[in-house]
Design a protein around this nucleic acid. Structure first.
Lengths: 245, 245
DNA sequence: ACCTGTGAAGATTTTCACAGCA
DNA sequence: TGCTGTGAAAATCTTCACAGGT
């Protein structure tokens, strides 16, 4: 058994060390499906079943799971409850991760009320904005505070994850406040590139970019379809999809 | 000059054909920054400048741009206006892309009112839900209609992109309705894996998964920090980051 | 007989490094 | 000289295919 990127043999560090980034993203998806399977009373699941349910290649799934250890049973599959437990440990979900949300605009308001977070072990522990009309109100029972309170509040409530849902121009300043407050992981919804020290992890969710990627595919499909009909936007095309001069 | 994956030489199809998926995602990011630079009155920008502003390696940026053609000037950089134009063409932003949004819950409501879409060439042209309390109301001047109207409304308004923000259990049915209505590109916010025909493109935005990925990194940083101090959660660790037995 | 775990091959993406043009 | 465009190398990720348990 040659553990791939792992240097250590077992224990917390072996699980946490060098799991490919692409695999980590999928582990979270497997975990959700396994939760559903557990509710339905399934005891075991095979890699083929779980792969089909999550839209992943079965070999890829097995390799992903192999990074966290060998918890499968050959000839049978994976024990659902045990695998859920291991995935939760690996993803750090056995610790509570308090989240601070900065920017209570349109999107921020929705995020503050999104039940998918608290129910999944990510309680929104603090809300911040600069707008005097917002500071002081409660959303879902949580007080909106001024961003100048970020250092104190984040320290008091043990915030480990920050979410930024401000307009682009305020995002960097908010990010700096969070980093100064000791937050090392940030989910950024603002359409801005954040500068952070090496030890801080930023993930970006950019809705406009997602739509533009889809728009590209709309255009591509349009040309692909045209290759069947021989016409793009009223212009004839040849078999290679080129506009005929 | 050996055009990499391209088979054709120039024209619409050459731009649209086989740009690596990873590059397409970044093109949208470059485009936004270029828009800002244009507003600031910049005429040209070098790959190093644009790369720094978007957090990308300069060589990668140049390769990305090379997929859409050679619009740079050696020794100078890229003409901002021309590059914006080419990127918009490539990403299909010269056509209007009407968006239908299904599921007007917490998140859906925020998406319906998100100004980042309409302002970027993605007008929300239709809203749908099943809740009788929602059907009939207007959000930002757009009527919420029952999902049974999806086929008629999407056809009438030329919807090319669908966004699904329903609970998980309703997502597949909504997806099927959209696909039947001719929608070929879908942005899925529901925590469910959608089954679609090959010709339909689905992108998934999963907020809970994003947080779980960050949680993994919180845990990893925690161990990394412990290797400095020699302690994890009060347990001593050795130099390899393993818990000492 | 069945299904996991994983070497090895293949595909894709990133990065380097430099030729070549303005 | 300065910066683009791009082969080639390196790194990463995916898929195949089968050895090896149960």
């Amino acid at each position: 058994m040659t553990k791939p990127p792992h240097a250590g043999s077992e224990g917390a560090a072996a699980r946490l060390r060098s799991i490919p980034e692409a695999s980590v993203a999928r582990l979270a998806v497997y975990l959700r499906k396994l939760g559903e399977l557990a509710e339905e009373g399934a005891d075991t699941v095979s890699s083929d079943e779980l792969a089909a349910a999550t839209g992943v290649n079965p070999a890829k799934l097995r390799k992903d799971l192999s990074y966290i250890g060998s918890y499968g049973i050959r000839g049978v599959g994976y024990e659902v409850a045990a695998l859920v437990h291991q995935l939760e440990r690996t993803l750090g979900l056995n610790h509570r991760q308090a989240v601070a949300l900065v920017g209570i605009g349109n999107l921020g308001h929705a995020l503050a009320g999104y039940s998918g977070f608290g129910g999944r072990g990510f309680p929104v522990a603090a809300l911040f904005d600069v707008d005097p009309d917002l500071v002081g109100i409660h959303i879902n029972g949580i007080l909106v505070e001024h961003i100048r309170e970020i250092p104190r509040v984040c320290a008091e409530r043990g915030v480990t994850i920050g979410m930024i849902a401000t307009p682009a121009q305020g995002a960097q300043a908010v990010c700096d406040l969070l980093v100064d407050a000791g937050v090392r992981c940030i989910l950024n919804f603002a359409p801005a590139v954040l500068q952070v020290p090496d030890e801080v992890e930023v993930r970006k969710v950019d809705l406009a970019v997602e739509l533009q990627i889809l728009a590209f595919h709309v255009a591509r499909k349009h040309v692909a379809a045209a290759e069947q009909t021989g016409v793009v936007n009223g212009h004839p095309v040849n078999g290679a999809g080129r506009l005929v001069p």
